[in-house]
Design a protein around this nucleic acid. Sequence first.
RNA 1: CGCGGGGUAGAGCAGUCCGGUAGCUCGUCGGGCUCAUAACCCGGAGGUCAGGGGUUCAAAUCCCCUCCCCGCAACCA
Length: 511
Amino acid sequence: MPKFYITTAIPYASQRPHIGNTYEAIFTDAVARYHKLVGDDVYFLTGTDEHGLKVERAAEKAGVTPQQFVDGVTADLRSIWDMCMVEYDDFIRTTETRHKETVKKMFKRLFEQGDIYKGAYEGWYCIPDEAFHTESQVVKGETGNLCPDCGRPVEWTSEEAYFFRLSAYAERLEAHIEANPAFIQPDNRKNEMLNGYIKPGLQDFCVSRTSFKWGIEVDFDPGHVMYVWVDALSNYITALGYDPGGNHGELFSKYWPCDVHVLGKDVLRFHTLYWPGMLMALGIPLPKQVFGHPWLLMGGDKMSKSLGNVIYAPELIEKYGVDCTRYYVLREMPFARDGSITREQFVSRCNTDLANDLGNLASRSITMAEKYFDGNVSPETTPQNEVLTLCAASREQYRAAMDKLAMQTAVTEAMAPIVRANRFIDETMPWVLAKDESKAEDLRHVLYTLLETLRAASVLLYPVMPLAMGRLRAQLGLPEIPVWDEPAPDGFSVKRGENLFPRIILEEAET
RNA sequence: CGCGGGGUAGAGCAGUCCGGUAGCUCGUCGGGCUCAUAACCCGGAGGUCAGGGGUUCAAAUCCCCUCCCCGCAACCA
């Protein structure tokens, strides 16, 4: 049984995750569920990045300790992941002892072997805010540069800091990226990494600070705490029981290297340059693939608090259900280009695809099966027709797309037979066949075709909508959880239940 | 000369790599059906494919130029 290790990036625990962040977890979950479906030994890791200045500040503002603060954010995040039916195997928090202890050892080892060195971090420093800003961040004022946060003057300041010697790995990184076309996905991002960062000259990056306290201590140099990269990125191996001394846990030996790191396009750089650089330094194999997914935009705009256009998953789930929410983001997000969500688009997509096409097909098919055959549809011979041929084709297309992480294509392929089957009903007119007793076997063939189409779809769409597909399968008289090679049954014994996807009525006030 | 992504029917998009009667979804108009969640099925209208020039028998698609929009600052994936 092939193993499949997949991760999300770990969201920063400074605030509640919105639907865009949540999309990443849902996407990763769907991929993980797909791999379980086809029989892989899947390990799915997610978690939270809980250190750093912003958390320290947010906690202060909230009047709680940083630990109390991240405890709250992480609990909320986990409840959102649960509502979204994101079923991870492990959840790592960077404030956990198991993580911190390993990271300290890693940091020390990297320092001892010369991959981490002490230097100076320079930048524009805002004294009242106690924060550094880069040249591009500061606001140009009449009397000098100003803090982008508070508007007060900033000073060019230097601070002692440790750096990771990424420059030493530039050639190896470039060679690896060139030699492994699948390493960076989507493809166009590969050139961006090569041309935008490696070729102009890779800079060493800062891995410690002395200007804030909320971080993992550099134990051989009190006063320094780790700054994001070594701390956060290493979660992918600390969670598996990696040991810088070589005494790895069972999970690490079994699941590393990672099959795919799923993350947002904005942090692709850190995962394709910084992280591999660190792994090379530690002598660990690189992840097989890093996928930088596009962003979910609110209409055409970036989702942001300041624009006040942020949507959170719980709100959608409470109103429209977990299946619609998952379906929307997975169906709507392209592979390489930003997707979009608005309430109108959401409602339209769910009504059209789920209520009108899929839900209604289930409803009319199962109702007819009960009406004409008391729910037992067992034809004497197995029908063969265009619809069933399409089912087989869609299954292959779906699989090919899923293996490439082309979720939108996979979902669209899975839905194709549903649309075809609705037409099939009009073509065959089962209500006419039902009036002629000599056509009973024909009628059975029609209904079997419809039910079998629904069964096939329930398998493909299970990773996307586990709850609704489980319900559909129950109505079809099938086990709730499908397997990829589930054979088409000789006959169906169905029982109608609640409508799977009630139509959503969008009220004026909600738009 | 900063980098990148876009500009195709009212809306959202595919097609552009590998030139050959312009396609999908939604909306709209007309028709059909009655098994179904006012759902489903069929048909119509609607586009000088941002603009200009070039190559070609033929360009949304290849080449050159111009214009416009969106990211690359921030909370943020």
